[in-house]
Design a protein around this nucleic acid. Structure first.
Length: 250
DNA sequence: TCGCAGGGCCGGT
DNA sequence: ACCGGCCCTGCG
């Protein structure tokens, strides 16, 4: 059984709700529903949930100490999602200096005011929306970043070519976008592009690495990231997700 | 109540 | 490399 609750409603997606026994996710081109007790999934849902990932191998690789062990036991069958690129990137632009509850609210404001039929709006719609309108929806200082990045996505073939890039090339490309720094780039690399050894170092994950793993809090982002990547041997992203949920819910 | 902090990033120095 | 500022609001 997939841990749908913590996978869909945890920290890696902002577009799912739980209602009447089913999880409902809104995307730019479709609504996806998953029964809470589902044991089989259609092709599309399987792809999003990454059912073909070698879960037992991932777990056996990252089980390196008591902290991660506890986190895994606390959130059994937690998965990393594979989410559509543009919506993921745009949503995470809203995450900077924000909290999850409010990010979820803003994402819904954008859906309700700019989207149609309950869908998240197409990227070109966001690109054409006035900054003032975006600010009305609660985006704050991120409004111009959201619009500018949306404009770049609609006027280039970035969304297509990034799918064939290696990790470093993709990261550099992402960081060049307005409102996208190392953290948001890493979220996109992991939650959409499936680079499993990328660990988005937000305040929570940094706190874990400092408090539980003894890293120097003054370490630079890239150094801390490299440490985690080596320690968790290819699956730092998965380890980070367990630890993130663990520390946020303790 | 009130001040801090929230899945950071940008621009100036 | 470092640091102040930033929209807005949830939370203790």
């Amino acid at each position: 059984m997939i841990n749908l609750k913590h996978t869909l409603l945890g920290g890696q997606a902002f577009n799912w709700d739980y209602k009447n026994g089913e999880y409902i996710g809104f995307f730019q081109n479709k609504i996806i529903k998953i029964q809470h007790n589902a044991t089989s999934f259609d092709k599309e849902t399987s792809k999003i949930l990454r059912l073909n990932a070698d879960y037992s191998k991932i777990l056996s690789t990252i089980r390196k100490d008591n902290h991660i062990e506890e986190a895994i036991n606390r959130f059994p069958n937690l998965r990393i999602l594979k989410q559509p690129f543009e919506q993921t990137l745009l949503s995470y632009i809203l995450s900077s200096m924000n909290n999850i509850k409010r990010i979820r609210l803003i994402v819904r404001n954008i859906r309700d005011e700019l989207g149609e039929d309950g869908l998240f709006p197409a990227t070109d719609v966001i690109a054409k929306t006035l900054i003032s309108k975006l600010r009305e929806l609660g985006t704050g200082f991120r409004a111009k970043y959201l619009k500018e990045t949306a404009k770049i996505l609609t006027s280039t073939n970035l969304s297509k070519v990034i799918l064939d890039m290696d990790e470093e090339t993709a990261r550099k490309t992402l960081v060049d976008l307005p409102g996208v720094g190392p953290k948001i780039a890493d979220c996109t690399l992991l939650y959409s592009l499936s680079f499993d050894n990328v660990i988005p170092l937000d305040v929570w994950c940094t706190r874990v690495l400092v408090d539980l793993y003894g890293l120097d809090p003054k370490m630079k982002y890239t150094d801390m990231s490299a440490w985690a990547g080596e320690y968790f041997e290819g699956y730092a992203g998965w380890a980070g997700q367990f630890l993130f949920e663990y520390i946020r819910n303790r």
